[in-house]
Amino acid sequence: MDCDCGADPSAALERRTLWMVLVINSVMFVVELAFGLRADSSGLIADSLDMLADAGVYGISLGAVSRSLKRQRRAAQLSGRLQILLAIWVLLEVLRRSVLGLEPMSAVMMGIGALALLANLLCLVLVRRHRNGGVHMRASVIFSTNDTLANLGVIVAGLLVAWTGSPIPDLLIGTAISLLVLNGGLRILREARASRP
């Protein structure tokens, strides 16, 4: 039997937290993607796809709440693989944009990057309450931490684009975000393996 329903008194709180961060990430995915396309920003598009991956991961984690360790481990593994696939997709998008030579709009990058930073700081505060929980919740802490770093990178890249007039900082942050997401996915897979009894 896979369900440990009722065994974990914090399950309802975990579920509520995961729903909240799922909604925040879904909304920010739409906002960042729309403005990233409008601003021709690899950094914003990369970060929006990271938000989409996180929303998917939080949905997967919701299915693991109050479940056996085996089910939580499977959810974490699926989450890690999703992050890795998204990282590869973002790298290809950055490459495509570098070939096209698109010019990003720095003001939009900084403004939306700051909004995303606030959203991810809220997510981080919410999920850190569960950092000692199951592997599926520890994975959520990794995502939110990575996201705040990525948002700071987008803001800095926006400043550098404005200062230099070059799209290179935007392409670099898009690449850096995808590598950060890739590393997060690999870390989650390692944690899932380490959680085996």
Rank of each mutant, 00 (worst) to 15 (best):
Q77M: 15
S66N: 06
L49T: 13
L100H: 13
S48E: 05
Q77V: 08
A53D: 07
L82E: 03
A34Q: 03
S61W: 04
W89R: 02
R67W: 01
L95W: 08
A53Y: 05
R71D: 07
L92V: 10
R81K: 14
S79Y: 01
D40G: 11
L91M: 15
W89K: 07
I60A: 10
S41E: 11
L82V: 02
A75Q: 08
G101N: 09
R97Q: 14
L78Q: 11
S61V: 09
A34G: 02
W89N: 07
V65L: 02
L69H: 05
I84F: 06
Q72A: 08
D47Q: 14
A64H: 04
L49Y: 15
V99W: 12
F35G: 00
A53C: 13
D50R: 07
I45H: 01
L82F: 00
D40I: 05
A76D: 07
S66M: 03
A55E: 05
V57F: 00
R81Y: 12
L62H: 09
L62M: 11
A39N: 07
R74C: 04
A46P: 10
L44E: 12
Q77L: 13
V57G: 03
L69N: 03
S42K: 10
M51V: 04
R67K: 12
L78C: 05
A39I: 12
G59R: 03
G56S: 09
